[in-house]
Amino acid sequence: MNATFPGLEAGIVPTDAPVEKIQASVVPDSDDTKAVIAYTLTPLFVLFGVLVGCYLLYRKRKGSSFAELANGEASLSRPPSAGAGIDNESGVLVAQVTLCEVRARGRFGAVWRAKLGQRDVAVKVFPLQDKQSWVAEQEIYRLSRMDHPDILHYIGVDKKGDNLQAEYWLVTAYHEKAHTLSWAEAWRVAACVSRGLAHLHEEDGSKPAVAHRDFKSKNVLLKADMSACIADFGLALVFVCGRGCGDAHGQVGTRRYMAPEVLDGAINFTKDAFLRIDMYACALVLWEISSSEAGIEPSAQYRLPLEEEVGSHPSLEEMQEAVVQRKMRPHIPPQWHNHPECWDHDAEARLSASCVLERVAAQRPASTPLTTPLTPDTTPLLIHELAEQQMC
Rank of each mutant, 00 (worst) to 15 (best):
T15I: 09
D272T: 00
S75N: 04
P380N: 11
A190F: 02
H179D: 12
R359I: 06
L351A: 15
A110S: 12
Q118V: 05
D87S: 02
R78G: 14
P298T: 03
P298R: 01
L152Y: 01
T15N: 13
S367I: 07
S292E: 10
E203H: 13
R107E: 12
A173K: 10
V123M: 02
G253Y: 10
T15D: 14
P369M: 04
D232T: 05
A70K: 14
V324T: 08
T33N: 07
V220K: 04
V240F: 02
T371N: 15
T40C: 15
T372C: 08
D247Y: 12
T368S: 15
D344V: 00
N338K: 09
W343E: 05
A211C: 01
Q325M: 09
K159F: 07
T371A: 15
L8Q: 10
E293K: 11
E9V: 12
H153M: 08
E307A: 03
T379W: 10
N338Q: 10
E358W: 01
V135G: 04
K131A: 05
G49S: 04
A136H: 04
Q118N: 13
T40M: 10
T368I: 11
N163L: 02
D232S: 06
P333Q: 00
E321P: 13
W336S: 03
K21E: 11
W112L: 02
T372R: 09
Y141E: 04
Y55F: 11
E176V: 04
E73I: 01
F274E: 00
Y141I: 00
H384P: 14
L316D: 13
R188C: 06
N338G: 05
V50F: 05
D225Y: 13
C245P: 11
A228C: 05
P376V: 00
E261F: 05
V135N: 06
P79S: 06
V27F: 02
H249E: 08
F233N: 01
A283L: 05
